[in-house]
């Protein structure tokens, strides 16, 4: 598993809001709590409903904002005894949901905490129970989303470089091990994988192969043809049409959003990146094979 330090997205704590209804505070009425909960969650804040009964998670180092209908209409000043966690309190007696949200937003801005929802969370999630570490996803993705861990295992490294709504890498995974939890259908969305599902995914790879190797090769071929024609005919319109036709075909085959296809780099750059990714994958596989063979040899000697 990769370490947090290897990741691209910065790890920044988020504000944890606590709806407090314990000692020293009155209970919220159901409609008020419901409205607050929806408002806070819609705005991207994690909320802890602290009431009697039930188990809650322990505090981490995320700052806390404690909201409550405190007695005498004044929020108590609270400090962490270990001085690890910043705690803010706010009395919400007679405050409407919007006014509460405004105060929460103010605290978040003051503390320079992560802005919720600024990035659409679309990225691949690997099911390591299924993954065979074949590295096809690494070779396939041209946006640098995947990488190899220190243990030579495939990992998702740069989530934010993934193209929103593009599930293409999950289509080339022969084991249906790549999920996009926000995708509309299974098994890409995380639905349990049936044998039929694996076959369906494999079929997609086979079809793509039948159509002329990997789709990037296909794109390169088409682009080269278009270049040739462009050179011969000096007709930019024809070349552009050709590229567009190729992209539309790929879009249909693999459910890739046109936006993602349009952001592909030039054919030369595609070739360079594809070669680089493939090299990385081949190196990782070779190292693993060497390690495995070394282990076998060692076992043989021991035996």
């Amino acid at each position: 598993m990769s370490t947090v330090a290897e990741q691209n997205l910065p790890v920044v704590n988020a504000l944890r809001v606590v709806l407090y209804e314990g000692q020293g505070a009155d209970a919220l009425d159901s409609a008020e709590r419901n409205s607050l909960l929806n408002g806070l969650l819609d705005s991207g804040y994690a909320v802890t409903c602290a009431r009697d009964g039930g188990t809650l998670s322990a505090p981490d180092e995320s700052p806390l904002m404690v909201l409550g209908r405190f007695h005498e209409g004044a929020a108590p000043a609270i400090a962490d005894a270990e001085d690890r966690v910043d705690v803010f309190t706010q009395d919400i007696t007679s405050l409407a949901t919007e006014a509460v949200l405004e105060r929460v937003r103010f605290v978040r801005e003051q503390t320079a905490l992560r802005v919720p929802g600024e990035w659409h969370p679309w990225f691949p999630v690997i099911d390591y129970d299924r993954c065979t570490n074949c590295m096809q996803c690494l070779s396939f993705c041209l946006f640098g989303v995947y990488d190899v861990s220190n243990e030579d295992k495939i990992q998702v490294r740069n989530e934010d470089q993934c193209k929103t709504n593009c599930p293409a890498c999950s289509r080339v995974c022969p084991e249906a091990a790549i999920m996009f939890p926000k995708y509309r259908s299974g098994p890409v969305n995380g639905e349990e994988v049936s044998d039929e599902g694996v076959e369906r995914e494999k079929m997609k790879v086979d079809i793509s192969a039948l159509l002329g190797g990997d789709i990037y090769q296909k794109l390169r071929d088409r682009s080269d043809q278009a270049k040739e024609r462009f050179a011969k005919e000096r007709d930019e319109t024809v070349a552009l049409k050709e590229r567009k036709r190729c992209l539309v075909e790929m879009q249909k085959d693999m459910d890739i959003p046109m936006e993602a296809l349009m952001s592909l780099p030039s054919p030369d750059e595609i070739q360079r990146r594809a070669a680089e990714a493939k090299q990385k994958a081949d190196d990782a596989i070779a190292r693993r094979m060497r390690d495995r063979d070394g282990n076998y040899a060692e076992d043989g000697l021991k035996g």
Partner: peptide, 29 residues
């Protein structure tokens, strides 16, 4: 909300996962 028990609510587990939000560790623990 109506059940009267304590609970945790998060806006989006996907975002928290991608951000390696320490809250997930806290919840798993």
């Amino acid at each position: 909300n109506d059940a009267g028990v304590a609970f945790e609510a998060v806006p989006d587990l996907c975002e928290m996962s991608a951000r390696k939000d320490p809250a997930l560790e806290r919840l798993a623990a």
